[in-house]
Design a binder for these strands. Structure first.
Lengths: 148, 148
DNA sequence: TTCGGTGCAAAGGGTTTGCATTCAC
DNA sequence: GTGAATGCAAACCCTTTGCACCGAA
């Protein structure tokens, strides 16, 4: 149980402490579920991974972990949220979503595109007078399982 | 009431008929609200524009209009959906969202980036065996109103 | 011993649905 | 006249909250 990598555990301790929170068993379990998964998970999926945590605690913990910049919430067209480790942990990346089953997977892009997106964000920031403009680039299509 | 442009009304009639639905007064009102607005609207905002429509009909109509490819639902981090006219009507574009107040506005990008995104979508399609991969590029930051 | 964390149950809030009525073709 | 659309209220479902209890520093 809670086979959390040392590096993530250290980071978690540090960043949770920074917001006055503790690294509890439940939070370790959630983090290890997310670390073990190749792709973002729904609350229900995380709960399956460890059904000892009450759903309410699940949500409360995910909110705390989000505040600690350890976890990121992904809003999806399919009405339930997905969660994954924060970009500080996972590295910058994008998402590919199946329009049928809703599964979300992580995708990395070429540096070239990233740079261009960065430039674009800057020019939008200037043009529309928005501060700290970030880009969110996702892709969606029909996955091979759903297509069969 | 329902000062819908002729071209949109024609298109609406056509595409609603294609899915066996009618162009009713309520649907005209919703479409004209969206056409009049410079930016995507929430259900509540559309309702304000015309408070004669029951909320339930609002949702039902928006779903029908979405099926008819007349309207697109935008999922937002701030927990309520935004709606706007479909890209077939509005043209391809992207969104800029305020992380504070949640407002969403439309943004057009240079052809150069669009082409690169298109290429990227294709290569992702091949790599992950997803069909009909589309891109969704949004930007988010703090708008000038919220920043003051 | 002191707070933060947890479980349970109840409440929230946006969205959907059942049903009888009304409307469009 | 017939099937689609509407209004109202109730149901849904994911998520949040209140409260008493538990647990780690």
């Amino acid at each position: 149980m809670s086979d959390l990598s040392i590096s993530l555990e250290t980071l978690a301790l540090e960043q949770l402490e920074a917001i006055g929170s503790r690294l509890t068993k439940s939070r370790k379990l959630i983090l290890s579920a997310l670390e073990a998964s190749a792709k973002p998970l729904t609350v229900t999926q995380i709960a399956k991974f460890s059904n000892k945590i009450a759903i309410s605690s699940m949500y409360r913990n995910l909110n705390v972990l989000e505040k600690a910049s350890l976890v990121t919430k992904i809003v999806n067209e399919n009405d339930f949220a997905f969660y994954e480790l924060d970009e500080h942990v996972l590295g910058h990346h994008h998402h590919l979503r199946c329009v049928r089953c809703g599964t979300v997977m992580d995708v990395e892009l070429a540096e070239e595109i990233e740079q261009q997106l960065h430039k674009t964000a800057k020019s939008i920031s200037k043009k529309y007078k928005f501060k700290n403009v970030e880009h969110f680039l996702d892709f969606a299509g029909a996955c091979s399982k759903c297509e069969s």
